[in-house]
Structure formats: structure tokens, C-alpha cells
Design a protein around this nucleic acid. Structure first.
Length: 111
RNA sequence: UGAGCAAGCUGAACGGUCGCGGGGGCGCUAUGCGUCAAUGAGGAAAGUCCGAGCUCCACAGGACAGGGUGCCGGGUAACUCCCGGUGAAGGCGACUUUAAGGAAAGUGCAACAGAAAUAAACCGCCAACUAAGGUUGGUAAGGGUGGAAAGGCGGUGUAAGAGACCACCGCUCGGAAGGAGACUUCCGAGGCUCUGUAAACCCCACCCGGUGCAACAUCGAAAGGAUUCCGCAAGGAGGGUUUGUCCGACCUAUAUCCGAAAGAUGGCUGGAGCCGUGCAGAAAUGUACGGCGUAGAUAGAUGACCGUUUUAAAUGACAGAACUCGGCUUACAGGCUUGCUCAAAAA
RNA sequence: GGAGAAAUACUCAAGUAGGCCGAAGAGGCGCCCCUGCUAAGGGCGUAGGUCGGGUAACCGGCGCGAGAGUUCGAAUCUCUCUUUCUCCG
């Protein structure tokens, strides 16, 4: 599967918040759960508190790019939701990418 | 040189590697996959404050209610917009601002203060009477209150005063000239009778039907619901649809209609379009010719890394299309151009 | 994306045909009664934010989301902006 599939339904997000594992840093929070589907899925949540449409779009793109580059290293199939915290508005690509990689290692998704 | 005013433009460019959206070409085992070269957020995309297109409701009709606009002329599809002018206010000036009709059509309101607020005598001034205290009358020049005090200022006049009278200014009316008009200028007359507020009700003139692409149409369509009464019929009652209300209009018996959540397709981008040149016009703008093809997503596509150039700075201000246009308003790092004003200095 | 509503003290709020309005009322707060003590209950009462002045009592200015405007005067009328909430498939 070439393209990254995204989580779209509200009930999928709710299930992850309720049942999934959770790790966090000062700019990101990651919820994750193993899935029976034959592929991994990514959901991104950027709340309105973080900024206007321009800032939110930028944060989403940074997270998506970071995930794209490390997606192939994930061995099992997971549902992953990345939530941006308010400090993320000022973060650059390196901070987001490093933070995401550390969190995925911490949760055991990434070796 | 300094300070400032006005108008307008701009809001980095190019290349490489990986990646994304929709469309196109080509290939293949063809509702898919691969590949190729293009293309892919703004001046405000924002706020949703106006005006339209377009959609459905009747082809958008009538009355009332409600709302909007408000000096004049022009522009525009239209406008609460734009351009030019008039008046008023502010600034030494360039220039800026201006919801700018009517207060002798009517109603309301004007707290407190003050003697008195649309109507006048508290103090004062003057006269008469009185032994005096004071009483009666005249008077709006002076005092004080107030946002506003009975046209202003100077003189004549008078017991003291007063448009009572006079000059100038203001106001109203009439006439003449100029102008397309708002209005301006001049002349004459009149009486100072007439406070403010219409972003209070209101009057006058003009305009506005509702609904907003989450509209709407088509496909699909479960549970369930509707299709009433009188009459042979015409029609009537009742019910339903449309608007804030009423009228009016339309629908109302055998197979059609309605129908939650969730979904697919269309609507969805070629349009009052953009660029250049000429012509008309004082300008907004109009018009002729030539050229261009310039996002269309549906949880929502532009990112990461590197290099080069321009630059004071490129790690970049405000900021992300959601049916589409025309405006307005608000936010904004800076940079550039043009015209003009004041001050100082020099000539 | 579109349509609409609201903002007043620490909280909930009344006040909107402009003027004795800076704030009614309630919660809250303080004091008293009741009790051995507390809670509950009852009674009474004040100030309210901020800036300045004053030893203090108190006095003055600005404050009804923010900024302009109309008016002699604005919580109230008009415009612009901010924030919050609701509805529309």
C-alpha cells in the first residue's frame, strides 16, 4: 500500500482515546493501538487553540511528513493518532520529527 | 535636509532529490496500476457589512407590517460602492472628514443647576408712594446658572431700557445674473415672530417578496406515515405548500406522495474573466483590436532537505480558496514609484 | 461554508421609549442569635473593579466586552472590531 491511509471517522478517534496506549511530549501526544487491518492508519488532530488555518495546516504537514519518512520502519500494523499541543505552533520540522520518532520508540511501535 | 500630505505598485526568484491534489497524454493483465510532462491559495483568500448572478418556492402578484437609502450630477448588472462637484467642520499648508432632506405637519424628551427652559423679574437699574423698613409699576443693558437665556456688535434714544430707530453682519421672503444641478454672486424688502434633538417617534422622496450551494436536482431508499367530509357533477368545507400577517395562487382517492442517520453523482468553475495597445471622457468608466486559458478539494491537496541569485534582511508581516463575481471594513514585516506642502539653509 | 443570538461586580443576573444610574435582587462575605462546640436555621449589615490623594474616615477620576460617532449628556442610539454560544446536511 503506497499512500498513507488516514483515520477519518470520529468513532475511530474515540476508540483510540479510550482504549489505546498513550505517550506524550511537550509538543505532541500519540495514541496507538494494534489493528487487525492489513495496513497502518494515521490520524492527526490539531485543535483550534493552536492557531489559525495557516498554522494548523503547517502543523499537519509537518506531522504527515515526519510520519511518511519513518512509516516503512514500523513492523506491525497500528492505528496511530497524533495530537498537537499548543506549543507545536512555534515548533519547526526538526523538533516535530525528533519528537515523533522518540515517542514511537517509547511506545514500542518503532525499534 | 527635516517634518508631513495624497495616489499607486509590490508582498522574492530559479534549480535539484523525496512526497501530495485534481485533470491530461501514453502503456499494461484496464472501475485498477505504472509512467511522462505540465499545473496547483491571497492582497486581503479574513470579517460576512452591503450589492448582484444562480437555486427552489407561482411566472414574484396585491395590501399591511418591517427594513434600507437620503446635498447635486455622472458611472455601473447592481449597491450603503466609485468618480467629479456644492455646502459645512478641521489644518499655517499640501489636504482631510462629512448618515449632509424636513424641527412654521404633529407628538415626545431636555436630568441637575437656575428667578425663569419655550416660558420669564432672583439680584440689579429706573420711576411713583412711604418717616423708614418696604410696596406698586417699568425694564432683558449688567450679574450668576446652564449644552442652550429670547438675533450679534457699535451707536441713537430713554427716567432706566428695549430692533423702538440706524449702520454692518446674520435670518426669512422676492427679483436678476451664472450653472445641467446642488448652489454661488448681486439688488431690494421685511420683521427679529422661530432653542436643541429626527444615529426619538415621525413626515416626504426613492428602493426592497422569501431562501441561501449545508440552496437545489438526480440516484438509492428500511421502519413508519398521509391520501378527510358533503355532492351525480360543477363546486364547497377542511387539510397541506409558499411569506412576518392577510389576500391571492397551487395541490388534495389507488397508485402516488412524505420519509431519520449515513451515502453517491451533479451543482463546481469560461466569468459583468485577466493582460496589452488605441480611441472617447476631467475622472470613475465605456468601447475596438490582439493575446491568455489561470485551483476545484470534501476531515479537505503546496511540505521536507539542499544549492544559487537579488536584498539591509529571505530562518519572511498579516494570513489558507470551499458556488461565483463587484465593493466596503479590518490585519499587515518591509520595499519602490509619482505628485505636492511647510520649515530651515544656499543661490 | 452559511444564518442568528449574547457579553453588566467573584458567580447568577435586573435595568434598554437617553438624565436624581454605577448598579435592583440573589448567591457569596462580615457580625449577632441559637448550641457545650460546629453544621443547618433565623436576624442585621456593609463594601464592591481600577487609578490618584489622604494616618484614617473618606474624596475624586475612569470603568456595563474594546474602540469611534450622534447628543448638552450613552449601559441604553449608530458604526467597526473581539470573544462566547446556538441552529442549518
Amino acid at each position: 500500500m503506497k499512500n498513507t491511509l488516514s483515520i477519518k471517522l470520529n468513532r475511530d478517534f474515540r476508540r483510540l482515546y479510550y482504549k489505546g496506549g498513550c505517550v506524550g511530549s511537550d509538543i505532541l501526544v500519540v495514541y496507538y493501538k494494534k489493528t487487525s487491518l492489513p495496513y497502518s492508519r494515521l490520524g492527526i488532530t490539531v485543535g483550534k487553540k493552536i492557531g489559525g488555518a495557516v498554522v494548523r495546516n503547517r502543523v499537519k504537514r509537518l506531522i504527515r511528513e515526519s510520519y511518511r519518512l519513518i512509516e516503512s520502519e514500523i513492523s506491525f500494523k497500528y492505528d496511530i493518532v497524533v495530537v498537537a499541543r499548543s506549543k507545536c505552533a512555534e515548533a519547526d520540522y526538526k523538533a516535530v520529527s525528533g519528537s515523533l520518532k522518540r515517542l514511537l520508540k517509547k511506545s514500542g511501535i518503532l525499534n
